[in-house]
Design a protein around this nucleic acid. Structure first.
Length: 424
RNA sequence: GGAGAGGUCGCAUAGCCCGGUCUAGUGCGCGCGCCUGGAGAGCGCGUUUACCGAAAGGUAACGAGGGUUCGAAUCCCUCCCUCUCCGCCA
């Protein structure tokens, strides 16, 4: 959510931000209009309420019955006006919130202009692309051949885009999760195990509602959503709280499965495990003071990079341009790892500085040391790498001519002595 | 899922039966000051948040949302949560 004061005082800045995101600017005028209506009604209704409060007190003190009755009649009239205006105010405020909740965050001045993802800026490449003296296979061949990915069973149990990991494959994923969590803990994050189902307010706070309704799974009976990312419950963790400045920054890491309907991407990336309705991910999340968020952003991205580096995966990084920037983000770096089999760079991490956008929605503030008004915190989120895609890269880059796959050294502590995954 | 109890200003509580003097008393905690060689005790003052307003000031919030009323922490309804017991269950 944007600051209504900012929109009121600097509407051109907000229009500009919508333009660079290639979005329609008319909501800005709607907001200005509704905001004016709102404030007009508030002034009117609050004057009447003050009158009613004073009048009601007099009634309490009034001795003369006739005078008292007259006053009651008068106040009843005032009360009716108040009710009518309150109703109007509710409507205007609901409308205002509705429009506001669709406005994206303002891009940072450090985010380069661009129309769409083709204009994202390359930051760097790191690591050596693996070389093979044979034709490297895609994971959808490696996995089934090794008996560690079972597409048919997934489809049988649930439907298309679902799969089962078996034996060393399932274990490999568990190793990845454990490796990442332990690494992030070393990097200064506190592990959280959160609910995987959350209520509407929580999804709204993280900025996934109302815009991404179509991508969420929902239990309509209980009015609960399945988390599309750990970012959602981690944002909600401090919802409606006032944190102490001394406690900031707060860094969390969490493993969760992620559930996405992906209606919009139907038909894309259907082969293999690249894009499913359910996938596992380890997330990093930070709450900090506004002035600290640029540095926290660089740190979090460095932490994501370290994850790829330790796994020995060649990667490259991008900065998203304004046209490709996510809804709540002001600035985003993406990290892609190379997958030798499908010959593709796979996006495995996206780190964003969300500034106070989620903090406003979720009402997360901190009290400055030495007192003063509570301020909104800044929040940042980043994937500590999405599991299936990292798994793809590991399987495809570490494959050998005989069809076996070498287990990266950093994962071996969790593999129970398995150094090479061989056909069963 | 059933029965009962309860949710009030950081914490603990009073107020609710009998609606107005209650944004709300008290204790603890916390902050500032006095006192003291210093500390403690003691004393004094202060100690939620949001919104509207240039300001003065005003409005709102006693789990949430509705209702009754001139007026609701207080009465009525719905929902949520916590605790105790029962049922069921990994």
């Amino acid at each position: 959510m944007l600051d209504i004061n900012l929109i009121r005082e600097n509407p051109d800045l907000v229009r500009k931000s919508l333009e660079v995101r290639q979005m329609d600017v008319t909501p800005v005028d709607q907001v200005l209009d509704l905001d004016l209506k709102r404030r007009t009604i508030i002034q009117e209704v609050e004057t009447l309420k003050a009158e009613r409060n004073a009048g009601s007190k007099e009634i309490g003190r009034a001795k003369d019955a006739a005078e008292r009755q007259a006053k009651i009649e008068a106040m009843r009239a005032v009360g009716d006006k108040v009710s009518a205006l309150d109703e109007q105010l509710r409507e205007v405020e609901a409308e205002l919130t509705a429009v506001m909740s669709w406005l994206p965050n303002l891009p940072s001045e450090k985010t380069p202009y661009g129309v769409d993802e083709s204009e994202n800026v390359v930051l760097k490449s790191a690591g050596q692309l693996p070389e093979f003296d044979f034709e490297p296979k895609p994971h959808w061949e490696i996995g089934p051949a090794l008996g560690i990915i079972d597409f048919e069973r997934g489809v049988k149990i649930t439907g298309s885009r679902f799969y089962v990991l078996s034996g060393a494959g399932a274990r490999l994923q568990r190793a990845l999760i454990a490796f990442m969590l332990d690494l992030h803990i070393q990097q200064g994050y506190t592990e959280k195990y959160t609910p995987f189902m959350v209520k509407t307010e929580t999804v709204f706070g993280a900025g996934q509602l109302p815009k991404f309704t179509d991508n969420l799974y929902k239990d309509h009976e209980e009015d609960l959503y399945w988390v599309p990312t750990a970012e959602v419950p981690l944002t909600g963790y401090h919802m409606d709280e006032i944190l102490e400045e001394a406690d900031l920054p707060i860094n969390y890491t969490a493993y969760t499965p992620c559930f996405r309907r992906e209606k919009m991407s139907a038909g894309r990336d259907v082969r293999g495990i690249k894009r499913g309705h359910q996938f596992d991910k380890v997330e990093m999340y930070t709450f900090c003071k506004p002035e600290d968020s640029p540095a926290a952003f660089e740190k979090m991205f460095a932490d994501a990079e370290e994850t790829a580096r330790l796994l020995g995966l060649p990667y490259r990084t991008h900065q998203l341009c304004t046209g490709d920037l996510g809804f709540g983000a002001t600035i985003t770096y993406d990290l892609e790892v190379w997958a030798a089999g499908c010959q593709e760079w796979l996006e495995v991490s996206s780190v964003s500085n969300v500034t106070d956008f989620q903090a406003r929605r979720a009402n997360i503030r901190y009290r400055p040391e030495g007192g003063g008004k509570p301020q909104f915190v800044h929040t940042l989120n980043g994937s500590g790498l999405g599991m299936p895609r990292v798994m793809i890269a590991v399987l495809e880059n570490y494959q050998q001519a005989d069809g076996s796959v070498i287990v990266p050294k950093v994962l071996r502590p969790w593999m129970g002595g398995i150094e090479v995954i061989s056909p069963m």
